[in-house]
Design a protein around this nucleic acid. Structure first.
Lengths: 226, 226
DNA sequence: CGCCTTCTTGAAGGATCTCAAGAAGGGTGG
DNA sequence: CCACCCTTCTTGAGATCCTTCAAGAAGGCG
């Protein structure tokens, strides 16, 4: 765990707090809420390329590439802490183990993106949505071999569509299909998965790439400066 | 530039030289040929998640995650140099600027993967194929504002399909359409793009994310040990 | 109570896939 | 130099998943 100084802010839903093309001097640590990283094509069609949860450094990579080729938007009301790149660099220079942890964090980001390519490229709507939900449940630490999983997920179907490269309409129909098969229920931002093993198999999900089994001292964890 | 020791090998076309689940002690530097990084879903459907060209460290990230959740396959006959992780770690410990360059390289990998998610998720077959070809032309240094671009690209339509998440049949029809619009010709592994600007616009391509403009001393370049 | 967001439904259209088979190209051995 | 073979490219036709467009229902909040 690290103690990092920085400036905290509250972000409203659907607000971009880093925009495409910004030159940023800070990385954003998510304290609360859910944040989406967006890329887009020339027609302005947006695609979520990562979903960030509390404890994540949403744009750690901006330390080595300050010109944002992405945008960061709050998917639910969020609190973030802007940590100056200078602080991160200084700490990394001081502690080689931290430098490696930062590198590793970027690598896990890349591994997750590779999974998203497979997800969007090779899985049908059912598996695609299930896989994404599995990823989030696992990263939230809510899926540890248990049979039943419950998690707060204050995002809507349009946002889910932006992350899975589907239309909101089709996401809706697919969720209905998953629901009618008893695979999940989702009300008021609370997702309930009664049978984790079955759901993970529908989502074709293998959590290996997330490295959740990494020893604590090797994983990145952040604490807010007092 | 670095001088790295390691063991060189020749790899035949279509041969996996790193397999899913391998525990690797080396990163593979591509000396010649083209290499694909594969991920797959549970049904064994393979998806190429990165294409590596000469000069690339194909699995640099294995330094911080030695359990391969990917496979590496030669898309054409290739020569690689296996560089021990220990050497990379030692060099990174010695030179902080190198450590940062390694981190940056992983970040560019992630940025490229994010583009692939957009590519597969939000672009139709024409744009998707064009975008991938633009990426390769740019990384090969063959697309520098000129009007006409020629490059060796010894890969086949099935491999292109695996990278774009299309079927070989549809790749074939799409290439015909690009050809009949005079956007490209492709014979015997030589790709010819008569009008780069027009082609890049069909592919919805903006090279920013590749950071090809990065100052040489900040970019990663590898030289073989004698 | 009224408004705005989000969810839901229907119907038609389109991009891409699947299956199947034939043509072209390059290499090898006789 | 020709015959053969194997890979790769090409073509056709029907099926399917997902999209598009349009509109109505439900839910939360002031």
């Amino acid at each position: 765990m690290l103690n990092l100084p920085g400036q905290a802010s509250q972000i409203q839903v659907n607000r971009d707090f880093v925009r495409l093309g910004d030159r940023v001097q800070h990385s954003c640590l998510i304290i609360a809420g859910i944040v989406g990283r967006y890329d887009q094509n020339a027609e302005g069609k947006r695609q979520i390329t990562a979903i960030h949860l509390p404890g994540d450094m949403a744009d750690l990579h901006s330390v080595v590439q300050p010109n944002a080729s992405w945008a960061l938007q709050a998917l639910s009301t969020a609190t973030i802490l802007r940590v100056p790149h200078s602080e991160i660099r200084a700490a990394a220079g001081m502690y080689p183990a931290l430098a490696e942890a930062l590198w590793r964090d970027t690598m896990i980001d890349a591994a997750t993106l590779a999974q998203w390519v497979v997800n969007v490229g090779r899985r049908d709507a059912r598996a695609r949505i299930a896989h994404l939900l599995c990823e989030l449940a696992t990263r939230l630490g809510k899926a540890q071999g248990e049979h039943s999983v419950v998690l707060d997920l204050p995002i809507n179907q349009s946002q889910l569509a932006e992350a899975t490269a589907l239309t909101p309409v089709h996401v809706n129909r697919t969720l209905q299909s998953l629901r009618s098969d008893g695979l999940l229920s989702w009300q008021r931002g609370v997702l309930h998965i009664p049978d984790w093993v079955r759901f993970a198999s529908v989502g074709d999900f293998d959590p290996l790439y997330l490295q959740m089994d990494m020893k604590p001292e090797k994983r990145l964890g952040f604490a807010q400066a007092s």
